[in-house]
Design a protein around this nucleic acid. Sequence first.
DNA 1: TGCAGTTGTAACAACTATCGTTACGACTAG
DNA 2: CTAGTCGTAACGATAGTTGTTACAACTGCA
Lengths: 147, 147
Amino acid sequence: MESDVSANSRLTIAAHALTWIGLYQRRGHEVATSEQIATSVNTNPVVIRRLLAKLSKAGLADSRRGAGAGWMLARDLAAITLLDVYQAIEPGPVFALHRATPDPECVVGHGIGPAMTAVYDDVEAALRRELAKTTLEDVLRDVLKAA
Amino acid sequence: MESDVSANSRLTIAAHALTWIGLYQRRGHEVATSEQIATSVNTNPVVIRRLLAKLSKAGLADSRRGAGAGWMLARDLAAITLLDVYQAIEPGPVFALHRATPDPECVVGHGIGPAMTAVYDDVEAALRRELAKTTLEDVLRDVLKAA
DNA sequence: TGCAGTTGTAACAACTATCGTTACGACTAG
DNA sequence: CTAGTCGTAACGATAGTTGTTACAACTGCA
C-alpha cells in the first residue's frame, strides 16, 4: 500500500507556524522570524516565508521588514479557524472531475459530471464545516495540555 | 492561482466505471470490457483495468478472463456507496502531519502533532459520513435524470 | 486442438506538484 | 551606513499520476 507522501502537510505546517507566533507573542515578543519558526517546524526558513506570504494575503498574518523584522498575527488566535487557514493555502478542491472530457454520446459520460459535482459540493461543505469548528486558540490549548 | 491538476480524479473515474458496468448489465449484457468503459471515460483501457483491479480486491467488482471476458459488478449498485469506492482506491488520508519531525524541545513542536491528529480524525470522519450517504444507484438515477 | 479476444501487470515517458536550497534585491531600525 | 530580515526567483531532487506499449496468462468457441 502506498504511503502517499504527497498528502497535504501544508495545513499542519501553517497551523504550527501561526500557533508558534501566537504563543511567542503572548510571551512578550513583538515579532517572530522565519528562522525561529523554521527551527520549531524543522524545515527551511524559505518554506515558512512562502507559506506565511499566503497567510498574509489572506489577512491572517502580517510582516515587518528591515532590521528587527519578522512576523506577527493579524488577528488573535481565537479569531482564526482552521478553515481560514485552509482557504488561505489550499486553492483547489479535494476531488476533481475527469481530466479529459468523457464521451458526451454516452449517457453515463454525459451525466456523471453534474452528478458527482453535487456530491463533491456536499463533501467539501462538510469538510469546511468541520474545519471551522476549531480555532487556533483551541489548537494552542491542546498543545499546552499535552506538555 | 494554481490549477491543482493533481487533485484526485480517481473517485470520479471509479464511480463512472462502476456505474457504466451497472447500466450495461441492466441492459442485458453479462460483462463489460475495459475498452468499452475506457471509451466512455475517454482514457486508456489500462487505466481502467488498473482501477478495476483495486475495486476487485475490495470486493466491488469481478473479472472474467479468457475469450468473452470482461468486468461485472460484485454487488448491486444500490449496495455500493461512494465511501466503499473511496476506501478501495484512496489509501492515504487527506491531511498529513509534518514530513520531518518538528523540534521536540519546543512546546509547539512537541504538542502540535496530537492536536492536529485529533482534528484530522474528525474531518476524515465527516468526509466518510458524507460519502456514505450516496450509493451508485443514486448516482445512476442522477445520471439518467440529466439525460 | 488452436485461435481470438481479454485480463493482469510490468515498464517507461511525460507532466506536474512539492520541498529544500541558494541567491539576491528591497527594506528599515539603530 | 550597516546589519538583519523579508520577498521572491530559480533550480534540482523526489514523487505521484496518467497515458502508452508490450506481453504473458487465461479461456470460450469453432
